[in-house]
Amino acid sequence: IGSLMYASIFGNVSAIIQRLYSGTARYHTQMLRVREFIRFHQIPNPLRQRLEEYFQHAWSYTNGIDMNAVLKGFPECLQADICLHLNRSLLQHCKPFRGATKGCLRALAMKFKTTHAPPGDTLVHAGDLLTALYFISRGSIEILRGDVVVAILGKNDIFGEPLNLYARPGKSNGDVRALTYCDLHKIHRDDLLEVLDMYPEFSDHFWSSLEITFNLRDTNMIPGSPGSTELEGGFSRQRKRKLSFRRRTDKDTEQPGEVSALGPGRAGAGPSSRGRPGGPWGESPSSGPSSPESSEDEGPGRSSSPLRLVPFSSPRPPGEPPGGEPLMEDCEKSSDTCNPLSGAFSGVSNIFSFWGDSRGRQYQELPRCPAPTPSLLNIPLSSPGRRPRGDVESRLDALQRQLNRLETRLSADMATVLQLLQRQMTLVPPAYSAVTTPGPGPTSTSPLLPVSPLPTLTLDSLSQVSQFMACEELPPGAPELPQEGPTRRLSLPGQLGALTSQPLHRHGSDPG
């Protein structure tokens, strides 16, 4: 009997000691992992102490058991019943959930998450997105703005933001810190809205009876308010094209079509300037034949640059190039080494500058006005007194259609001029006259002087055409309008007829 009692007592005591040691061994194993994590990542002392304290409290609170892992091991129907039991206190005593059906309560219970916070733990920081609604079931918390405590909340209090009033989550206007050990039930806004969409009859009752104890939403960050730039940057990543407008005076608003859609830094370009900076079609017209890549860069430059609305530039004389043409100036200075066709295309550029300027006046029909002061630039669209967005969009579309028509007509005119030049060069190729044979009589004449090349004649003739079109064909006081194609086609051969009437002889060394 004594040996039996000794064996039973010894066996029970050893089993008890073994169970104690097993729990202690698990605790030390998990604690060792936490300390190894702290050492590996070199976490500083204040945060390291918070980690160790939280682990110790969580171990004593749950005995080292992962409740979520245990809950996920059950089937979904059983999980709903378990969640309904775990959140029964909240669902029974909170006013917004009263009167809900059994199915609605089960769906809500599945969406709730339980959070346990030790003292000093910050649940929400200032500036964080308010993605959830919090219900306090135990403990107390404090809300701070800077170093000032603005509120202390306790059991059955609710904090967050009214989700039904805002389409997008706002930002917190303060820090939420736990004063004691707290148990909180939180539900994400997407989950709550999903359940309320499934039960629309409960939705009206819920929003009407929901009383948020403390609204954390920062009202200064609401979209459309003066301080909402940061919020707009976070939620409006896919922005449309940006529009900046110059201020319109009362006198300017009476004149229709007073602005032109141009790229940034293009205030001095012609009315047909689009795409790359520098001139019509993204580059100076005089350098068009020598740089074919300008047409390839036109599309990307047009689509990537934001639109700006600026006044037209001052008018340019008909014979003056659009500006920024070092290529043609070098050719004029060193005409001995340049291609003979460069002079002809220089005359073509003069005609283009004249036609572009006159067509700009035809479509816009307003006098040039000086540029406004820099303080009046970049007025935002949302400022008071601005035109409605639809009106601005319609004006932009009208300007775009005008620019497209202008570009089409300029292309047709350019093709006409090039065809005339090619026809003239085919009839009378460039050549130098040879020395004529002296006559049989004693009164022999001296050799004839060489005839100037055709490109120079073409430049003079085209300059005469531009001056003739600019000065004589337009009646005084009438708006400057571009001439039609047949009129220009008839004027060019008439001007060139006198020049080509002389018999030109080919030089023996000319390969053409």
Rank of each mutant, 00 (worst) to 15 (best):
253 T>V: 10
159 F>Y: 01
127 G>P: 01
196 L>I: 07
221 M>E: 12
499 L>M: 09
472 E>I: 08
381 L>N: 15
511 P>Q: 09
422 Q>F: 04
161 E>K: 02
242 K>A: 12
380 P>V: 03
315 P>W: 15
421 L>V: 07
171 K>P: 05
272 S>H: 13
139 G>K: 01
363 Y>A: 10
460 D>C: 05
133 L>S: 02
193 L>D: 03
467 Q>H: 03
511 P>V: 09
441 G>C: 05
271 P>R: 08
233 G>T: 11
387 R>M: 12
309 L>N: 13
163 L>E: 03
506 R>I: 10
234 G>W: 06
194 E>K: 07
368 R>F: 12
148 V>E: 13
140 S>L: 06
396 L>C: 03
200 P>V: 03
386 R>W: 15
130 L>I: 13
404 N>K: 05
285 P>V: 10
481 L>N: 10
356 G>H: 07
354 F>H: 08
285 P>M: 15
406 L>N: 04
402 Q>P: 13
467 Q>S: 12
402 Q>W: 05
143 I>G: 02
221 M>S: 09
342 S>F: 12
461 S>R: 09
318 P>C: 15
374 P>H: 09
262 L>W: 13
235 F>I: 10
154 G>H: 08
296 E>C: 11
371 A>F: 09
368 R>D: 09
139 G>S: 01
405 R>T: 04
440 P>Y: 11
420 L>Q: 08
423 R>Q: 12
245 F>M: 12
289 P>W: 05
381 L>I: 13
161 E>A: 03
297 D>M: 11
322 P>H: 15
362 Q>V: 11
456 T>W: 05
328 M>F: 04
486 P>D: 10
472 E>V: 12
209 S>G: 10
509 S>Q: 06
332 E>Y: 07
190 D>P: 03
158 I>H: 01
352 F>R: 07
245 F>S: 10
225 S>N: 12
217 R>C: 05
288 G>P: 06
340 P>A: 13
510 D>V: 13
455 P>D: 04
141 I>R: 01
308 R>K: 12
335 S>P: 13
386 R>N: 15
313 S>R: 10
373 T>Y: 08
483 Q>K: 05
226 P>T: 10
193 L>I: 09
141 I>D: 01
464 Q>G: 11
166 Y>C: 04
194 E>P: 03
399 L>M: 15
174 G>F: 09
412 A>R: 11
257 G>H: 13
211 E>V: 09
503 P>E: 10
187 I>E: 03
257 G>R: 08
417 V>R: 03
166 Y>S: 10
216 L>Q: 01
337 T>M: 06
162 P>V: 03
134 Y>M: 04
447 P>C: 06
149 V>G: 03
166 Y>R: 06
462 L>P: 10
452 S>T: 08
471 C>P: 08
154 G>D: 06
246 R>Q: 12
479 P>W: 08
353 S>K: 15
312 F>A: 04
470 A>K: 04
394 S>W: 15
499 L>R: 12
332 E>M: 05
441 G>P: 13
184 L>V: 12
420 L>S: 06
294 S>T: 04
330 D>T: 10
480 E>T: 12
345 F>R: 05
329 E>H: 15
467 Q>D: 14
172 S>E: 01
128 D>Q: 06
463 S>T: 13
360 G>M: 10
215 N>C: 09
478 A>H: 09
434 A>C: 12
320 E>R: 08
188 H>G: 09
326 P>A: 11
430 P>E: 08
434 A>K: 07
318 P>D: 11
325 E>C: 07
241 R>V: 11
230 E>I: 13
132 A>C: 14
359 R>Y: 04
428 V>F: 01
369 C>A: 08
498 A>L: 10
347 G>H: 06
139 G>W: 03
423 R>C: 04
399 L>K: 01
347 G>T: 06
221 M>D: 10
203 S>C: 13
297 D>N: 15
254 E>D: 11
177 R>G: 02
387 R>E: 09
244 S>Q: 10
225 S>D: 13
454 L>D: 13
351 I>H: 09
193 L>Y: 07
325 E>P: 04
284 S>C: 15
305 S>D: 15
483 Q>A: 10
426 T>I: 12
191 D>V: 03
155 K>N: 08
267 A>I: 08
270 G>H: 05
135 F>T: 02
449 L>V: 07
234 G>H: 12
410 L>M: 09
330 D>S: 07
208 S>R: 09
161 E>Q: 03
186 K>F: 12
465 V>S: 07
170 G>V: 02
258 E>M: 11
467 Q>Y: 06
340 P>H: 11
442 P>E: 12
205 H>D: 11
399 L>E: 03
426 T>S: 07
399 L>V: 08
429 P>Y: 06
136 I>A: 01
358 S>C: 13
172 S>D: 01
259 V>Y: 10
264 P>H: 13
169 P>T: 10
475 P>M: 13
192 L>K: 01
262 L>Q: 15
131 T>L: 06
369 C>S: 07
150 V>Y: 09
299 G>I: 08
156 N>I: 02
410 L>D: 04
455 P>Q: 10
228 S>W: 07
466 S>W: 04
313 S>A: 13
374 P>I: 06
270 G>N: 14
272 S>F: 14
158 I>K: 02
263 G>V: 11
190 D>K: 04
431 A>P: 08
315 P>A: 10
209 S>R: 10
231 L>E: 12
191 D>K: 01
182 C>A: 06
171 K>H: 10
460 D>V: 04
366 L>Y: 08
185 H>P: 01
388 P>D: 14
483 Q>Y: 06
316 R>V: 06
420 L>Y: 09
318 P>L: 06
376 L>W: 11
292 P>L: 10
205 H>N: 13
504 L>P: 05
375 S>K: 07
459 L>K: 13
439 G>Q: 04
330 D>F: 11
187 I>K: 01
164 N>H: 11
177 R>C: 06
234 G>D: 11
382 S>V: 09
505 H>C: 06
502 Q>I: 07
131 T>A: 08
413 D>G: 03
418 L>P: 04
220 N>K: 07
438 P>T: 10
262 L>C: 10
237 R>W: 07
137 S>E: 10
203 S>A: 12
438 P>C: 13
398 A>T: 06
193 L>K: 08
175 D>G: 03
457 L>H: 08
186 K>L: 09
368 R>H: 12
469 M>H: 12
309 L>P: 10
262 L>S: 11
348 V>R: 07
336 D>T: 08
419 Q>D: 06
330 D>E: 14
383 S>Q: 15
440 P>R: 10
246 R>L: 13
274 R>F: 06
224 G>N: 10
174 G>V: 10
384 P>S: 11
397 D>Q: 10
289 P>D: 01
419 Q>I: 03
341 L>M: 10
335 S>C: 12
311 P>G: 05
473 E>I: 14
172 S>L: 03
195 V>I: 06
362 Q>E: 11
194 E>Y: 06
199 Y>H: 11
492 L>T: 06
512 G>A: 12
476 P>L: 11
164 N>Q: 08
251 K>C: 11
465 V>Q: 12
404 N>H: 12
335 S>A: 04
338 C>W: 12
178 A>Y: 01
190 D>S: 07
179 L>K: 09
171 K>G: 01
443 T>F: 06
386 R>E: 04
152 I>M: 07
200 P>Y: 02
205 H>T: 10
217 R>M: 04
235 F>M: 12
253 T>M: 07
313 S>V: 06
414 M>I: 13
496 L>F: 01
252 D>Y: 12
223 P>G: 11
303 S>E: 12
326 P>K: 03
470 A>D: 11
165 L>T: 13
336 D>Y: 05
366 L>T: 10
504 L>H: 05
340 P>F: 04
239 R>M: 09
149 V>C: 08
418 L>C: 04
478 A>W: 05
407 E>K: 05
396 L>K: 04
304 S>W: 13
145 R>D: 10
318 P>H: 13
182 C>D: 01
186 K>I: 10
434 A>Y: 10
308 R>Q: 11
248 R>G: 10
183 D>G: 08
287 S>I: 01
425 M>E: 07
150 V>P: 01
328 M>R: 14
350 N>E: 10
248 R>I: 10
182 C>R: 02
204 D>L: 12
280 P>D: 14
510 D>M: 05
377 L>G: 11
248 R>Q: 12
181 Y>W: 05
359 R>A: 10
346 S>F: 09
422 Q>K: 05
467 Q>V: 06
235 F>N: 11
